[in-house]
Computed example of a mutant assay.
Amino acid sequence: MRLLAGYLLTPIYYLAFGFFLAIFHPIQVIARRLGGYDAHKKSVGAMNFFLARSLFLVGARVNFEGFEKLPHNRPLIVASNHQSFFDIQAFVHGFDDWHPKFVSKIELGKGIPSISYNLRHSGSALIDRKNGGQAIREIIRLGKYIEANNYAVCIYPEGTRSRDGQVKPFQSAGIKSLLKAAPSSLIVPFVINGHAELMKRGYFPLQVGVKLTYKVLDPIDPAGRPAEELVKECEQMIKRELGQA
């Protein structure tokens, strides 16, 4: 029955998803040109509100937890496990009050309605994985940006998606560069739980009735500790929360 429901409801969800991306692309452009950064940010926040909530169309139960733990007077480096493209809307919606930014591969800066425009114009870092120098410069620029404004940046230390939900080893290079440029940052472990189950059969059909939890764990004050040690601690915290440690 759930499989049949998935075949029936998944097209409706994707139609809604595509509709919100399409309609909010011109809204973003107009908002940015007429109202600058603040208006653009509000348009992106509204879009991701609808994207996150549209998962209700496949019966998902969506829960955001732990955001009350976060201060507003320090930049945040959010280290998250990475299960699917749904992770992006969860981060942007959950961290809306902290002006969320990304470290993202440069290819995503083109061709995707709304998403590519936001990545190019929000201050996020678009890195070329084949050009180490460019990647480091972009990350350092972004680090200085969040340091000056107390914004949040999300980075996926696994480097790529884990399609079965099992957390892959975290790499420290990106967080190390961000900490150099944003030394007053807190490290925030962020747990994505349920997206692997949602996409158990891939993009089609989606699983119906999945519980999706987006949880902020206790922030870590770097306090001069080595980046490698901090990243390992984040990895272990996220694994324990997912029952993988």
Rank of each mutant, 00 (worst) to 15 (best):
G45W: 11
D38K: 05
N73K: 15
F50K: 00
P26C: 01
P71L: 11
M47F: 06
Y37T: 10
A16F: 03
H40Q: 10
L55C: 11
L51T: 03
V58R: 13
V29N: 04
Y7M: 14
K41M: 08
K69T: 04
V44L: 08
N63F: 09
Y13H: 12
G45H: 12
E68I: 11
L51N: 03
Y13P: 08
Y14Q: 02
V29R: 06
P11L: 05
A52K: 01
S54V: 01
S43Y: 00
F50A: 08
R33T: 03
Y37F: 08
G59Q: 12
L51W: 01
A39Q: 02
V44Y: 04
H40V: 00
G18R: 02
F50E: 05
A39F: 04
I27L: 07
A22E: 00
R33W: 06
A16T: 00
H72Q: 13
L70I: 09
L4A: 14
T10P: 15
F49D: 03
H25Y: 04
K69C: 11
L8E: 08
R61D: 13
G35L: 02
G6T: 00
A5W: 15
V58Y: 09
R53K: 08
H40T: 03
A52N: 11
K42H: 10
G6D: 07
A60M: 02
F17E: 04
G66N: 12
N73I: 14
P71C: 13
R2M: 14
L51K: 03
H40N: 11
M47E: 10
D38L: 07
L55Q: 12
F20S: 06
I27Q: 04
T10Q: 10
L55P: 12
L9E: 02
F49S: 11
K41E: 10
F24V: 00
V29Y: 08
A16W: 01
I23Q: 00
